[in-house]
């Protein structure tokens, strides 16, 4: 028993680096941000005033914030299911043809492996209103050309499409890994039990066996989708007229373009709360259903 105090001292000593890092890198900045959200601090200013909940009240009335919030939700609600669904389909297709597996894996994983900013620049060329490949190809199908990134009706959907494109590869590769870890025996057993048509096999064996993988892919994709920023920053800057504004880009604009750091901090607090809620929701709803 008398070894206990010594033990607990050692425990604290060993976890100290982790605790210090956690506080200086996560908790500390989080608290500072939360504090700043109650101030009118201007980026670069030497003084600030405490203004209570004014920033949050302003946010409530801020049409731009509402647009960004709506757009971000729409982005997540389309990009996550679409990229996960496409990723699963592609993984199944690619796995069914082992000959070209390596090629497909590389091709679809490319957008994941390269930085999205560089890819965004390529998209900028492709979406160019007059010289771009996209309008050119669409003209074969008698679709009228448009400036995809400047047209209020298409800007957000273009960003969403690029989001799906960039996330599908990751989902596919993760699903391919998941597929390979499904024991062959299970399909054999299924065949004897009568699960021998492709559709039954996917629905009764593959999909349930991919449960943990799917949870992981969904979580990763949702968090990544919530962090959408780089394509917006490079391609539209939230425009035209905030039709493609998203939360993270709004925070950036307020904090670093308009220097309204207090307001940006308030936005960040809301952003983090939403992320926390999403994570809790996912843990509650999905986790208990897929683990066995």
């Amino acid at each position: 028993m008398h070894a206990m105090p010594h033990r607990s001292w050692l425990g604290w000593a060993l976890s100290a680096p982790g605790i210090i890092a956690l506080f200086t890198l996560v908790v500390g900045p989080g608290l500072v941000t939360a504090l700043l959200s109650f101030s009118d601090w201007q980026f670069g200013a030497t003084s600030l005033n405490w203004i209570g909940f004014d920033n949050f009240v302003a946010m409530w009335h801020d049409e731009t914030f509402r647009k960004a919030f709506r757009n971000t939700l729409l982005y997540i609600c389309v990009v996550v299911p679409a990229s996960v669904g496409l990723g699963l389909m592609l993984a199944l297709l690619v796995e069914s043809d082992p000959g070209l597996r390596a090629f497909y894996r590389a091709a679809f994983f490319l957008p994941v492996a390269s930085t999205l900013i560089a890819m965004a620049v390529v998209w900028q060329f492709m979406l160019h209103p007059t010289a771009g490949l996209v309008n050119h190809v669409l003209s074969w199908f008698r679709v009228a050309p448009t400036d995809w990134l400047k047209n209020p009706a298409t800007a957000l959907w273009t960003i969403i499409a690029i989001g799906v494109w960039s996330k599908t590869g990751l989902a596919m590769v993760l699903f391919m890994a998941g597929l390979q870890s499904i024991p062959r025996d299970l399909y054999d057993a299924g065949q004897i039990d009568g699960i021998d048509e492709a559709w039954d096999r996917v629905l009764r064996i593959t999909v349930p066996m991919l449960g943990p993988t799917t949870l992981f892919v969904l979580t990763i994709s949702a968090i990544q989708a919530f962090q959408v920023f780089d394509t917006v920053q490079v391609l539209t800057e939230g425009g035209p007229n905030k039709t493609s504004e998203v939360l993270l880009h709004l925070i950036y604009s307020e904090g670093f373009s308009f220097f309204r750091a207090g307001y940006a901090a308030a936005l960040t607090v809301v952003y983090l709360l939403v992320v926390l809620c999403l994570i809790q929701l996912q843990a509650l709803v999905v986790e208990r259903r897929v683990h066995y």
Binding site: Q191, I205, M209
Partner: peptide
């Protein structure tokens, strides 16, 4: 096809469906 052969098999790994 396997399911029409009226044959049953017990696997080394048991090959049970873990989610059922």
């Amino acid at each position: 096809a396997a399911k029409h052969r009226n044959v049953a098999m017990v696997f080394q790994s048991y090959a049970l469906y873990p989610y059922m």
